[in-house]
Design a protein around this nucleic acid. Sequence first.
DNA 1: CGTGCCCGAAGTGCATGCAATCGAGGAGAG
DNA 2: CTCTCCTCGATTGCATGCACTTCGGGCACG
Lengths: 233, 233
Amino acid sequence: MPEAPNSKDKVGVICRALRRAIIEQALEPGAKLPEDSLGERFGVSRTIARYALGQLASEGLVELRRNRIAVVVTPSWQDARDIFDIRMDLERLIVRKIAGKLSSSQIARLKAHVEAEREAHDGPNAVSIRLATEFHIMLASMTNSPVLVRYVSEIAYRCCLTLSLFSRPHSSECGISEHIAIIEALQEGDANKAMSLMHSHLDSVANRALVEPTPARGRDLLDVLAPYTEEAT
Amino acid sequence: MPEAPNSKDKVGVICRALRRAIIEQALEPGAKLPEDSLGERFGVSRTIARYALGQLASEGLVELRRNRIAVVVTPSWQDARDIFDIRMDLERLIVRKIAGKLSSSQIARLKAHVEAEREAHDGPNAVSIRLATEFHIMLASMTNSPVLVRYVSEIAYRCCLTLSLFSRPHSSECGISEHIAIIEALQEGDANKAMSLMHSHLDSVANRALVEPTPARGRDLLDVLAPYTEEAT
DNA sequence: CGTGCCCGAAGTGCATGCAATCGAGGAGAG
DNA sequence: CTCTCCTCGATTGCATGCACTTCGGGCACG
């Protein structure tokens, strides 16, 4: 648990705030994150802000460029495919691990969460997205595997990022009923059913989003040209 | 790619050095990592050393304790099980992804690496361990999935850590022939065979190591007592 | 009107300083 | 002789300062 809700942990506070801002799309890909402003905003010095940015960068949410202002990452279409792909496998794994093994209180918590999703459905889009993401993280945490929680959280956050890039504005209709179906399969202990439900759930989310490189749907020249630059070796 | 071999990147240099020291078991679990000493050793200020420790902590290799000297993590037996478990799935995934899709030059690189492993077999144990680990990372990198590479690297490093904790001193005989068999299955394009080979390979490594909580094989009182403390919820 | 250069402002890279905290070891009481 | 408390050195937590790099706008020139 690298980040307990310890009020003394300034770095953690900043990271959580930024992650949340990103997940709710208040911070879009490419948004600038100057150390000064961050420090000022959170009442700490640049040192701390810088450190927080480092952590976020290690999670793949922020891009650190030498001598340049840090920015929220702008995943390439290739990145997006990659991340969704791994996510698929990890979440199937999670579902397999917990199918039929949840306590009734855990089931209750899941259902309560989905209920919250439903309530938020008509509210601001950002909240819906966050809740939907948190549902998956909640599932992960029920495996009691810290590693899985970390990886799925990371990937889920990054998916939000790509959604805000590639999907059309609506798209928030993120399958609440699918979440419910998954919970039921989990409760029944039908691992295969749960896995296939999870699979199609994620698949539909991905397809809603990653419709294709969608020729010129990048933000600007820089992104449009990205596929044509060569630097990989 | 959060760490190009950029000579300007002091933090990266320190991280790599430390990772390598850990993987070669020059730094055992519990080893202290004071910021001053690190800084002095690498010719940088505490600021940088601290930053590097932060990165390592986010990878789960180092434990940061507030107001205390950072130490190399000492995985609990439970952690070890967890990590090996996930590793199993991730590496099976990798093997599935690349089976039959490797270019001949990639195969050649793999074979060359195993050859290096063989040559190092009679040398220092530490080198053997490192090479064996790097083989798995090499495999991961052939998926062209940065995320997978990151996760597998992280997990592989952590496995080394648990090995140095729980396995008896010898145990370096880390199945070079198994690596070869895997390469062959990969080359043939037989995904299932490759997956099952990988499975049994990792299983034998794990079993060689995680023989059981192995009553009193901890480093000192603190570790010996660990299984008897209760803090899990 | 477009192009290239230059300089000031903004921002990062890193070291250092000072206060706060931890813990090891010694002094003192029982 | 042992246990407890207290003090001092070791070490971290964090802010600040300074050098260097990058960015962006204005100005001269074509």
